[in-house]
């Protein structure tokens, strides 16, 4: 038992080390671009103030809400062109890129590692844990970028200013801290983990590039259809029923859909790995 645990910890540590070694530049890119976006936001707020708008000072809550807000509900046929919110697509495609590249590289050496880990399900568990860590690290990077920008004069509180929200997202709203944490942080993280695990399990069946294409498609389709079954909607907090944007996404529905898909992808991956015949594959 002790030996098995040791093997598992070896594989997991190898995966984490490899993942960080491969991905640190991508996290750095995520950090720098997030900083650039925050800089552009501050310039925008300053120019709005110079034009005569009376706005309160920016808070960390405002900046995070702006970064993670996603898009409102889209109505097809209303004469409005379909637009992709660039901050949102940047964050989630960066996560897909990080996860995709880690696993594209880790999967190529999978058979040797399978032998080392001795049990296939431990190998698969290690890959799933690394996927979750990749997502969490991406969010930590975004939070760190916001943390650094506190030195530029942003107030270190998570309170949202309705006036700032009106200037940035065209509608004033405010939320209690726990509501904000659930809608803007926890739910997007859960959905992001779900999408990343789906991507990871797909890499067992298809080429990593095709899986990446699948993630792009899923994200763009989520922007178009406001439905909790289209899981990307969990990353679009403005569509939540709590906020005044006519959204129809309920937190519980999304969390349930995500949980089901997370469990399904872990089980499917485990079954697939169990069926791999090492001798014929090597």
């Amino acid at each position: 038992m002790k030996r098995k645990t040791a093997c598992f910890s070896h594989v997991l540590l190898h995966d984490i080390r490899y993942s960080i070694l491969i991905s640190w530049k991508k996290y750095l890119a995520l950090f720098l671009v997030t900083e650039a976006i925050i800089g552009a936001l501050m310039v925008r707020i300053q120019s709005d103030c110079q034009l005569g708008m009376v706005l309160p000072p920016l808070t960390a809550g405002d900046v995070l809400t702006y970064l993670l807000s996603g898009a409102k509900i889209f109505r097809y046929g209303a004469g409005i062109p379909f637009e992709i919110p660039y901050i949102w697509i940047f964050i989630y495609l960066m996560i897909a890129f990080i996860v995709g590249e880690n696993h594209a590289n880790l999967m190529t050496s999978r058979y040797m590692e399978l032998l080392l880990s001795q049990e296939k399900h431990r190998w698969w568990a290690s890959k799933c844990i690394v996927t979750v860590l990749d997502v969490l690290l991406a969010y930590v990077t975004i939070f760190a970028a916001v943390g650094i920008s506190l030195f530029w004069g942003i107030k270190p509180v998570l309170k949202i200013s309705p006036d700032i929200m009106k200037a940035l997202i065209w509608k004033a709203f405010t939320l209690k801290p726990n509501q904000w944490t659930v809608i803007f942080v926890l739910l997007p993280i859960l959905t992001s983990v779900c999408i990343s695990l789906l991507q990871t399990v797909s890499i067992l069946f298809f080429k990593p590039m095709i899986c990446f294409t699948g993630v792009i498609t899923l994200l763009v389709v989520s922007l178009f259809y406001c439905n909790p079954a289209v899981i990307g909607n969990g990353t679009l907090p403005l569509r939540n029923t709590i906020l005044p944007f006519e959204g129809t996404i309920r937190t519980l529905d999304v969390a349930l859909a995500d949980a089901v898909l997370i469990v399904a992808s872990i089980i499917i991956g485990n079954i697939k790995i169990k069926k791999v015949d090492l001798l014929s594959e090597v």
Binding site: Y76, F82, E83, T213, V220, V221
Partner: peptide, 12 residues
């Protein structure tokens, strides 16, 4: 430009 297909095409 009103449906998602054109934007999707140019990303994919």
């Amino acid at each position: 430009g009103a449906s998602f297909y054109l934007a999707l095409s140019y990303l994919v």
